[in-house]
């Protein structure tokens, strides 16, 4: 399959990327191309121009300080999966990165490209929402001044294939809070066997004091246009001992959090996704709490 024709610009800095975006209406940024190239080939996207940002060195790599993991948006899933620093301070990210797609997708696909594309069935939006990540975005303001803003994950993802990124903006960093020793996490997904995209997934971060849950962040993906925070499950967990019965009871509350749109498509009906949701939530909490799988 061949993409429709486009103009191609390779840029080497954020400033150059912003300038090129402004100069070409409807231009799209491309990093690893693993979301965009399939769309181009199917001609579901036909941008007049592509701005290849894969060579911007400032947007690559991982650094960790006392409170935050700073991830360049051009960092590949493989680099995150293989990072000892990430595994140490944010094991949920390492777990999620290692399960994305297949080795070749992880070698080329980038975290920034993934979240900017915002496919409801992909893993990062769910995990980064559960981790309360922040997205740093640069754009151009009055008098062509560079403007930087920071958006919380809950506000970054606005719908299926939609984010709060403006047409002339670029994601420049993802900031994820370092997890402390009381925090435990897990990601559970029912992946479609052909595409490896999630049909239903659940990301869980819990704080424990002994066996008691003191804080909980539970987010579902794959089943709605954007990540869904399972506030009812979180509420049911907090203050409880993490026993099998309590976890099952809390997970069952997820139906209260799915009052909004649940998607049905060729992979699974909405009814099926609603039925699977409590199972994946339960699995994720079980793993996070260090209990045996059941």
């Amino acid at each position: 399959m061949f993409a429709a024709k486009f103009e191609y610009y390779k840029v080497n800095s954020v400033a150059e990327a912003l300038q090129t975006l402004r100069a070409h209406n409807g231009a799209k940024l491309m990093a690893g191309g693993h979301s965009l190239i399939p769309l181009l080939k199917l001609r579901l996207a036909r941008p007049a121009a592509l701005v290849d940002i894969s060579g911007i060195l400032d947007l690559q790599g991982i650094s960790v300080d006392d409170t935050t993991v700073h991830i360049g948006p051009l960092t590949t899933h493989q680099t995150i999966a293989a990072s000892e620093a990430v595994a140490r301070v944010c094991p949920l990210m390492a777990e999620v990165a290692g399960e994305i797609g297949d080795p070749q997708v992880r070698n080329r696909g980038t975290i920034g490209g993934n979240v900017s594309h915002a496919d409801p069935a992909s893993d990062w939006p769910t995990a980064l929402t559960a981790l309360n990540a922040q997205f740093v975005i640069q754009g151009t303001g009055a008098l062509h001044r560079r403007v930087t803003r920071t958006v919380a994950a809950a506000d970054f993802f606005t719908g299926a294939l939609s984010t709060s990124l403006g047409e002339h903006e670029i994601l420049t960093e993802i900031q994820v809070p370092v997890m402390n020793t009381a925090q435990h996490s897990a990601y559970a997904k029912m992946a479609h066997p052909a595409t490896f995209f999630s049909v239903v997934s659940a990301a869980v971060v819990i704080s424990m004091s002994g066996n008691r849950c003191t804080q909980a962040s539970v987010v579902l993906g794959g089943l709605a246009p954007k990540p869904v925070r399972a506030a009812s499950v979180e509420e049911a967990l907090i203050g409880q001992d993490l026993t099998a019965d309590n976890i099952a009871a809390a997970a069952a509350q997820v139906s209260n959090d799915l009052a909004g749109e649940v998607m049905g498509d060729i992979y699974a009906s909405a009814e099926y996704r609603r039925a699977v949701a409590p199972v994946e939530v339960k699995h994720a909490i079980y793993h996070a709490a260090g209990l045996a799988h059941s």
Binding site: I37, P38, Q78, Q104
Partner: peptide, 13 residues
């Protein structure tokens, strides 16, 4: 040195 799917990579890449 790393595997890529060459149907999902542009020649210019």
């Amino acid at each position: 040195g790393v595997t890529v799917k060459s149907c999902t990579c542009l020649a210019v890449h």
